[in-house]
Amino acid sequence: MKENDSFPLIMIHDVEYVYSNGTVALKKISLNINKGEFVAIMGQNGAGKTTLIRTINGLIRPTKGEIFLEGENIDSKTIATLSKKVGIIFQNPTHQLFSNTVEDEIKFSLKNLNLDREEIQIKVDKVLKEFNLEKYRKRSPLNLSGGESKKIAIASIICRDPEILIFDEPTLGQDAKEIRFFVKLIHNELKKGKTIIIVTHSIEFTIEHPPRTVLMSGGRIIADGPTKNILTNEFLVKNSSLIMPQVYQLRIELQKIGIDVPKEVVKEQEMINFLNNYLENKTTTLPEGRLKFL
């Protein structure tokens, strides 16, 4: 066993960040993330979520505090070195697309790894197939739809095989099919042992997928723990300018008409299962109006 295995993969210790205009974006942030974890970072706009992820691959250096990757301080490491381990997929794909073809766009990321030509081609073919982008291989990435552009942006990071994948608002502007593809992709990467962090405002996505949530407000972490505990806490959720998850809201409404839904029911499928069970085993008839509601 390597010595580094005893450390959390990402260790953020007392990090503070102050922008040049004096805005304090991060205040005494301490956070540990283990290898293979799937974590959501949530919070209102300006809470410091994006600033925090930028510190992890060295795009910005903390004003105070330290960040360790596999037990090593990243302070002296260049962004190029860190980007081999940490891949950030930013919100706006148009910020990174510039090549003539989709294939070249993916190649650009791999060329930065100094791989030989054959190896690059093998990796490009593999990732294009995985992302179902083969038909766009020779097309300009600049003329594709928002969803496809996002796929290219993700593919151009995943092909580099970083150990940690960080997504900034991955579901924003995506249709249901694209979100399904994204979920499948994340689970594939988790199976490969990758660590995934997503920054999102989508409470419905978070309640369904990442098991751990970190809630930020005003540059601080105000809660960190199992998603189902955090996102069903009205005080925390409302203080982060979020709306309670729909399944939670339905549970409250059902309670009002006398149907006790267990607290453990937080996901969509869990609610469907509960309701199916309830309707099958129900012995008493509900008043007509209420039955209509169900």
Binding site: R54, L59, I79, A80, G87, I88, Q96, F98, N112, L113
Partner: peptide, 29 residues
């Protein structure tokens, strides 16, 4: 710049031609 650096793009490269080539990933987007 942040997005490209996350893909391993290096800002500083040696040689004038390389430096000019290096501007494309920033200027085109």
């Amino acid at each position: 710049m942040d997005a490209q650096q996350s893909r391993g793009y290096e800002m500083q490269k040696k040689g004038i031609i390389n430096q000019i080539k290096n501007l494309f990933p920033l200027l085109v987007p």
